[in-house]
């Protein structure tokens, strides 16, 4: 089961971490609707992560809250991309776009996984993600085709995000087993499909994907190597839980 646990941990951690980052927009969004959008997506992501932690729990791992709030940053398996600070709305939107398309395609694939507990949850989650992807596409297009400043800021954010985004597809130790057992299509196949989907949308938004010769995926997150941003995030996220673990608030 180690291969399934590895897959579940990286996905659950990606979702928990981006969920927390999304929630940091609560009360601070550039307009009220965006404040609500990022807050709603935060709630969705954390709910999705909880569903995956629940499967892990059934496989003998700690119960979801303990797993989410009692680990140290180096025990997290999320891609570094997701732990980076929100920065401005431009970077948050680009990250939202790049991550959510990958997330949607990942759950689409897992809906047909041979591992039924995951397939069941994936069939539910993939429908909900439609709204995240719609939202991302609308804003990428609006800001990419907006005025000179919005266009320039989106292009800079895309350039800065790109190599981190490629790090989402870092392969794990059990990659071949997951593919052979038809549990998951594998990161390479997912990345190819992701590129095929996002490229025309980025072009329509009048933005450019960095030249392929400059692609250098930022790896390590899946193996527990993180930036200091994750320490900050984990400390803040777990602060209340750790006052008295297990207590009902």
């Amino acid at each position: 089961m180690e291969h399934i646990k590895e897959l579940l941990y990286k996905m659950a951690d990606d979702l928990l971490v981006i969920g927390h980052r999304n929630s940091e927009w609560t009360g601070l969004g550039p307009i009220l609707e965006e404040d609500i959008a990022f807050s709603s997506m935060a709630q969705d992501k954390i709910g999705h992560s909880q569903a995956l932690f629940q499967i892990l729990h059934q496989l003998g791992e700690p119960e979801p809250d303990t797993n989410a709030f009692m680990r140290e940053a180096k025990q997290f398996h999320n891609a570094q991309f997701l732990e980076l600070q929100n920065d401005d709305y431009d970077f948050s939107t680009i990250r939202h776009f790049l991550f959510d398309h990958a997330d949607q395609l990942r759950f689409d694939n897992l809906a047909n996984s041979s591992y039924e507990p995951l397939a069941k949850v994936a069939r539910k989650i993939k429908g909900e993600l439609k709204y995240h992807v719609f939202h991302a596409d609308i804003w990428l297009n609006k800001l990419g085709n907006g005025n000179e400043e919005s266009h320039a800021r989106m292009q800079t954010a895309l350039n800065n995000a790109w190599n981190y985004a490629l790090g989402m597809f870092e392969k794990g130790d059990y990659e071949e087993q997951l593919i052979a057992d038809t549990i998951f299509e594998g990161e390479q196949s997912l990345q190819n499909r992701w590129l095929a989907v996002i490229t025309p949308i980025i072009e329509k938004a009048n933005l450019k994907i960095p030249a392929e010769k400059d692609w250098e995926p930022v790896l390590g997150g899946r193996k527990g190597y993180h930036t200091e941003n994750l320490d900050q995030l984990v400390n803040e996220m777990s602060e209340v839980f750790r006052i008295e673990p297990g207590v009902e608030w």
Binding site: E33, Y131, F134, H135
Partner: peptide, 13 residues
């Protein structure tokens, strides 16, 4: 549609 998100996860505005 103003936004696909609303006061609860199941509502849009």
């Amino acid at each position: 549609m103003k936004t696909p998100f609303g006061p609860t996860l199941c509502r849009s505005m």
